[in-house]
Amino acid sequence: MKDKLLVIVGPTAVGKTALSIELAKRYHGEIISGDSMQVYKGMDIGTAKATVEEQQGIPHHLIDIKNPTEPYSVADFQSAAMPFITTINNKKKVPILVGGTGLYVNAVIHQYELHKKQGDNDLRHKLEQLAVENGSMHVYKLLQEADPVSAKQIHPNNVRRVIRALELTKVTGIPFSEQQKEEEMESPYDLVYLALTMDRDQLYERINKRVDLMMEQGLLEEVTRLYRQGIQNCQSVQAIGYKELYQYLDGEISLEAAIDLLKKNSRHYAKRQLTWFRNKTDATWFDMSNGLNSHVFLEICQFIEGNWPQMAKYRDSQLEEES
């Protein structure tokens, strides 16, 4: 018997958090964050962590487990997430993996054998030095030459992934994109895989409004605290929402320009997320353009119960409680 795993992915601001909590309440679930930045302590507003009130008593895992100065990789996430899936199943509950970091989610779903990918420390250090001396675009162009497919899938500013893809391409002689294809296999889990989407203009408007709300909630103060702690050139503060305000705090741009840039970068990121999930997953898509209303929630529940008929008992018991 395979362990169950419910997965919810989608672009930023599409409504993953609200849906995951409602499904966890209905199906006796616990939530595993599949977000590469929610692992960091003290980075709450900019990473859109669910507040204690929003969590509604649902256990959340892999949130606030790292200091902002610590690196965090897909291998770290995989090794941390998989035991939670087993533990939650053993409690006869449903693990719900929720996130927008596609590579992290797929690394768990397909149990990529990341530890077998032996790199070359000397080569990596040389590439890192090239990036420092000549800029991120220099190493990105090297990746474009070595593996154009990976270059299209990795953003030029994600220097760590660019260098890793280059390193593994050169060490193995096989393009990193081909290595990823070889990893695609049947999931070891009894998997229900949901992806959320939304009308593009509506999604972008939600993103813009969410940035405004984050600023009202104290995002600038949150970023300023990290800045004053001397946290510089760390993976954590390269995240969208932090790097733009760091530019403001460095005196490079105005606050208004930083907020506009944050909105722009968030919209572009959402577009890349949608493209990635459509191209790299076999998830079933649900349209959230009308919000998490009773119709779409029922549709999602029916899909889950169609794959896992035993889940209907939770729905029935809940209906009895409500009546």
Rank of each mutant, 00 (worst) to 15 (best):
T284F: 10
N290E: 12
R225G: 04
V108A: 07
R272G: 03
Q118P: 03
K264G: 04
Y140G: 09
A24W: 03
N208H: 09
G119W: 10
G218A: 05
A195Y: 05
L292P: 06
A312V: 15
L255Q: 13
Y314T: 06
A312Q: 15
V9S: 12
N121I: 15
A13T: 06
H155E: 07
A257N: 08
I21L: 00
K117E: 06
G10W: 01
N157C: 12
L262C: 13
T172R: 14
L103T: 08
N89L: 01
E216I: 11
Q78C: 07
K25G: 01
S136H: 14
N157E: 12
Q129E: 11
K25S: 02
Q153H: 13
M215P: 03
H60G: 01
A165L: 11
R124W: 06
G291R: 10
M43P: 02
G29Q: 08
V192H: 07
G218L: 01
T51F: 02
R225D: 08
Y140L: 07
S36Y: 06
D282Q: 15
V9N: 05
M198V: 15
R200G: 02
L220E: 08
S289L: 07
M1D: 09
E167S: 08
G100H: 03
G251C: 03
V149H: 09
Y189R: 00
S294P: 09
G306R: 08
Q56T: 04
K2S: 10
V162R: 12
Q235T: 05
G42P: 06
V9R: 05
K16S: 00
K2Q: 09
T17L: 01
G119E: 06
R161E: 12
E53C: 03
S294W: 10
A151S: 13
P59W: 02
L114T: 13
Q238L: 11
E244W: 05
Y246H: 05
Y246G: 01
I31T: 01
L261Q: 15
K93D: 00
Q318P: 06
P71A: 08
P148G: 07
W308E: 02
H28A: 10
C301P: 05
I65N: 09
Q38P: 02
W276P: 03
A146Y: 14
V98M: 03
L274V: 12
L143A: 12
Q238P: 03
